[in-house]
Design a binder for these strands. Structure first.
Lengths: 243, 243
DNA sequence: GGCCTGAACTTGTATGATAGGTTGAACAAA
DNA sequence: TTTGTTCAACCTATCATACAAGTTCAGGCC
């Protein structure tokens, strides 16, 4: 029997238990109802407090909760504004899931592969010339620091996110960014097992192949190159002892 | 030039600006440092307040923020516990992104397609017999309510999530759940354009083909069936006027 | 043993106060 | 008219305190 997922409508239909919860609901409804877009200003905490008939404490916790999810942005003195979609929330969530062993590294890599397989294909079809050049440049930078693990990790993530940006679908940027970011912590363990520089160079060349395929505007080649990249990673994961 | 994403390490390395932010950081670090797992109890708000040298208000807002992200769970009178990974956070985030037009429906569908393409393949390889039977049963239920839009929508989501569950990768359950859930709001608009029952029946049969392929343990057939399903959806989206 | 009870603890919410950041309009200077 | 300054009003960040209501668990009673 499949596990039962309680059906949840957006913003959790489940009757709000605490006043903070209902305040959160009221605020999101307000944003939606007023048709507010990113950057638009919200009423003050005091205003919500009065209109909802609760203390400012309650509204404040609701605001903070929404700010944590980047649904709104808060700054001292300034009114809260509607927030922009961002990878950080999902990244935090995924990092937590990894650390608490609700998900393991191979599972994360598997999902990442699925997402990026589409991301590179779109990038190959939609990239601008500037983006193509930038990707090739990033690969060049990677070649220069096969020994610097930390730098390599950051370049790696930036490279994959840049591809996602070129896909012209911000959702891919966020998904790729958060999935990559969450894996960051396991990355050093994997690389430690690539002792010989030759293997490390293989990784860089895998990236080069992806960048080239995207520059050539060849989705199929890009997918093939990405598949090779992930196969390499999968082997490394296995070697590093991830189950 | 590709847009510059400021590199963010997990839990945002960016120097915490407010005390609440640093409290959030301290709490997540505590969870990680103590190696706490899902369900483990955290120290009380008062304890954190004292150890961090801030008021309970600050700790409370930090707790609420983490609770919003499901990193911890809070209940009146009970100590906070480490929370389980859940689709609701991402669903809320995505729903907000859709409502504020940071992402549009076709983009969401595209990402969903990428994720589910892998989800069904894994499900076909790993599903238990019980899961296969359950999927077929769910399709049967869908056949019985082609006229009930709301019910159909919920069954649809439940079906895709059930497949993800069968993939044995909880990340897919979360991704599929949240992506499907976020699309829920646009679903009625799409279905309104499938006037004739014949087309609606096509949709149900597309699901049937997926379920059958998974039951047969045939990943390739499952992918093909899923592709057909999404092509159908893409056409409907176009008809409904989504750009 | 099993059930009940209450004290101790913990979270949920309210109130009031203060410090410090932000904003916008009135006003002065160029 | 334009630009720059200043200040009052507004707003958020944080604190201290208080009390209601839910939870836990050790004893005590049957």
């Amino acid at each position: 029997m499949p596990q039962h997922h309680p059906p949840k409508t957006p913003a959790e239909t489940a009757a709000p238990t605490t006043r903070v919860d209902s305040a959160i609901r009221a605020i999101t409804d307000y944003i939606h109802g007023e048709g507010l877009k990113v950057g638009d200003r919200l009423p003050s905490e005091a205003a919500f407090a009065e209109s909802l008939g609760v203390s400012r404490t309650v509204v404040r916790e609701a605001f903070k909760s929404l700010a944590a999810m980047r649904i709104i942005e808060m700054h001292a003195g300034r009114r809260a504004r509607v927030g922009g979609f961002d990878a950080s929330v999902m990244a935090l969530s995924l990092t937590h899931a990894l650390r608490t062993e609700q998900i393991n590294a191979p599972q994360m890599w598997d999902a990442r592969r699925a997402v990026e397989m589409r991301s590179v294909a779109l990038a190959a079809m939609r990239r601008t010339d500037a983006e193509a050049a930038a990707l090739l440049e990033q690969v060049a930078q990677m070649r220069d620091c096969v020994d610097d693990l930390a730098r390599m990790t950051e370049l790696d993530i930036a490279f994959h996110v840049a591809i996602a940006d070129a896909s012209r679908n911000p959702l891919f940027s966020v998904l790729v960014g958060s999935l990559s970011s969450a894996i960051r912590e396991t990355n050093p363990m994997v690389w430690r097992h690539r002792r010989d520089n030759e293997t490390r160079r293989d990784v860089v060349e895998a990236h080069a192949a992806i960048a080239q395929a995207i520059a050539d505007g060849d989705p199929d080649a890009a997918c093939a190159a990405l598949a090779a990249h992930f196969d390499l990673a999968a082997r490394a994961l296995a070697t590093a002892g991830f189950n």
